[in-house]
C-alpha cells in the first residue's frame, strides 16, 4: 500500500529548474533512499515532500490525501542534528509533542521512554554539547519519531559521523526503523549505505534533477565485500554516472 506519493514534481529557483517531473512513491514500512550527486535537487525534493516549499507543478499525497505545501504531516530530520543547545536532550526530544499541545508531563514521560529505547536515558538531562556525534544523531532521530508521522524524511542522517560510528549507527538505525514499521525516505551520497538500508533506491541525475532509475534491493548476503553486494554496487554506480 502506497503511503507517500510525489507526482510530477517540478521546482525552479530564479528561473533555473532544479527538479523536473519527479515521481516517487513509498509503501508502508518501506525504506527508500535517494541517491545522487550534490546539487541534483535531493534536498529540494525533501523540502517539497515535507511541505516546507510548494512545487511549481505536481502534487504530494499522503495516504491519498493531497498535502502539497502543508507542513507538519511528515517527519523531517535535516542534515545536521539541529538539537537546541539551550535545551536538555529530553527537552529537545519532546519538542514535537509540546508543539502538538501535549501536556508537558506526559511529553516528558514519552520522551524518556523513547530515550530509553534509543539507549540515551542516562543523557536525558544533559545538554547536547555533552553528547558524541552518534548520540546526537540518535537523539535527533528520537525527536523525529515523536512527531508521530507515518513517513519520515531523513536528509543524510549519518553524513557528519566518522566511519566507525556511522557503520554502527546504520545497523542500529535499520533495526529501529524495521521494528517501528516506519516508512522512510533518506538521502545519501554513499552507495554502500543506500544498499544496506534500502528496499528501493531512487537515483537522481541530470543537469535538472530527474529520476534516472529505481533499483530494488534484495540481497541474500548483506556483507559489503560479498560478490552479490559488489555487483549491485557496480550497477548502481554505472547509473549514477
Amino acid at each position: 500500500m502506497t503511503v507517500l506519493e510525489g507526482r510530477l514534481l517540478t521546482k525552479s529557483y530564479d528561473n533555473t529548474k532544479i527538479i523536473e517531473d519527479i515521481c516517487i512513491d513509498v509503501k508502508k514500512g518501506e525504506m527508500v533512499s535517494l541517491l545522487g550527486v550534490s546539487g541534483v535537487g535531493k534536498t529540494t525534493l525533501f523540502n517539497i515532500l515535507s511541505g516546507l516549499e510548494c512545487p511549481d507543478s505536481g502534487d504530494v499525497f499522503l495516504n491519498g490525501e493531497c498535502i502539497t505545501g502543508k507542513s507538519g504531516k511528515i517527519g523531517y530530520m535535516q542534515q545536521s542534528d539541529l538539537l537546541l543547545p539551550f535545551k536538555t536532550v529530553a527537552e529537545n526530544v519532546m519538542i514535537p509533542l509540546v508543539l502538538k499541545g501535549c501536556d508537558k508531563k506526559e511529553a516528558k514521560e514519552r520522551a524518556l521512554a523513547i530515550l530509553e529505547e534509543f539507549s540515551l536515558k542516562d543523557c536525558a538531562n544533559m545538554y547536547p554539547s555533552k553528547l558524541s556525534g552518534g548520540m546526537r544523531q540518535r537523539a535527533a532521530l528520537a525527536r523525529t519519531f515523536l512527531t508521530g508521522c507515518e513517513v519520515l524524511l531523513l536528509d543524510e542522517p549519518f553524513s557528519a559521523l566518522d566511519a566507525l560510528t556511522r557503520s554502527k549507527m546504520q545497523q542500529w538505525f535499520k533495526g529501529v526503523i524495521k521494528s517501528k514499521g516506519a516508512s522512510t525516505v533518506f538521502i545519501t551520497h554513499d552507495v554502500d549505505e543506500a544498499i544496506l538500508l534500502s528496499d528501493r533506491i531512487y537515483i537522481l541525475g541530470g543537469n535538472v534533477g530527474r529520476i534516472e532509475s529505481v533499483t530494488k534491493v534484495s540481497l541474500d548476503n548483506w556483507d559489503n565485500t560479498s560478490e552479490e553486494f559488489i555487483k549491485l554496487k557496480k550497477q548502481i554506480l554505472e547509473k549514477v554516472k
Binding site: 542534515q79 537546541l84 539551550f86 508543539l99
Partner: peptide, 29 residues
C-alpha cells in the same frame, strides 16, 4: 537563530509565538 532549527519548527507547523519563545529569544540571549 539557527536557520535549520527555524525550518525544523516550520516543518512541525509551529506558530510564530512558539518559535519566538522556544527558539528566537533563547538564541538572542
Amino acid at each position: 537563530a539557527d536557520k535549520g532549527v527555524l525550518r525544523l519548527y516550520k516543518s512541525m507547523s509551529a506558530t510564530y509565538l512558539r518559535v519566538l519563545f522556544d527558539v528566537k529569544i533563547p538564541y538572542a540571549a
